[in-house]
Nucleic acid binder design. Structure first.
Lengths: 192, 192
DNA sequence: TGATGAAACTAACAGTTGTTAGTTTCATAA
DNA sequence: TTATGAAACTAACAACTGTTAGTTTCATCA
């Protein structure tokens, strides 16, 4: 029926991510994950090698999806405003499709071990690319001459928190939402 | 020397909050907290009654500080724009003075137990007050007619994340920063 | 039918957790 | 000097942690 049905490992990672969002990585036990799947904790080890392995799977693939998205935005020849629109679209899309994993990406990354440095590298590169778009936009007079660090912080923290908010709004029209978000983040809310 | 020197309990709460920010509440052990203070875990219990007690102390007093700040902004007779400026000021001030506790407020509130409902009540009331300011601002044509839920989410998530960013900038001029933040959050970044 | 292998199970492990009980240390006050 | 009390200590606990070893179940296929 399903075109490519979920493997048992993928199911474990998906269920674990939900629990990680509710309680955080450390507070979730292997017995919690197993119970939610209707099996015993020891059975999980037929499919994964460790609890750490689950966290790696949750975080790294999503972090790479952000990196890939940024690469294609970067390499397009769009102007600043269109690039910013595309970044907002990227976050709305990935956050609505992976709202559980986004929680770990934001809150549990410090519990990565072997893959911690790799994750940090991806994050720094993403921020560098974003900052470059803003600085180029200032140079081109597309955006105002405010501190690019503060702009980056302000926009990115909102985008990184979408996972908290999106799932609460059941009947959310994502396209309309993206447009409103663009308006508020980029054009401001004041009536001049 | 110090006008009102820190009690031992306050010291425990302060040290614990630093560790909670680094690793999250669940990942921090009583032995971690004790080690950082140069004593044994059992000795902590001369001053506090439980680990839970520490988390309560970290989170609740800060949550109440936000509530108190909002009360005085609400009851002032300022216009929408000045109220928004004051809210930004409140967050910058409390986040710079309590950057460790802010992390628990954002990430560890779900591990509150007896005080969980009280915390949730404070948070909902704070958001309701903020929303009312925005809706009144739309009515008064001070701000644009965008979805107030999206505005609230967008501004508040940035303000709630200040604790991540502020301590990284050593020589940050808080007053200048507040002004820049106001400009970006309220007036937008586009060059029209 | 009998063999195979994936995926569940039971039982147990060694280490860590928050916490308690009882004891010692030591500056200050009587 | 002696007594007091705050605040440290050692030792231990029961519960829980991630993980391993060995076993059982059962659908599939030669």
């Amino acid at each position: 029926m399903s075109p490519k049905s979920e493997t048992r490992k993928e199911e474990i990672v998906r269920v674990a991510a939900q629990l990680f969002k509710e309680k955080g990585y450390t507070a979730v036990t292997m017995r919690d994950i197993a119970a939610k799947m209707g099996i015993k904790a020891a059975s999980l080890y037929n499919h994964i090698t460790s609890k750490q392995d689950i966290l790696d799977a949750v975080i790294i693939s999503l972090a790479e999806a952000f990196t890939n998205g940024m690469q294609s935005i970067k390499s397009s020849n769009n102007n600043t405003i269109d690039k910013l629109k595309q970044i907002i679209q990227l976050h709305v899309k990935l956050s609505s499709q992976n709202s559980y994993a986004m929680a770990s990406l934001n809150n549990d990354w410090m519990h990565l071990e072997e893959r911690l440095d790799y994750y940090k590298k991806l994050r720094v590169e993403y921020e560098d690319d974003f900052r470059t778009i803003l600085v180029d936009g200032i140079t081109a007079s597309d955006i105002i001459e405010a501190n690019p660090e503060v702009m980056l912080f302000s926009i990115l923290t909102t985008l990184r928190s979408l996972y908290i908010w999106i799932p609460k709004k059941e009947d959310l029209n994502l396209e309309e939402f993206t447009t409103t978000l663009y308006q508020i983040l980029i054009e401001g809310i004041i009536n001049k």
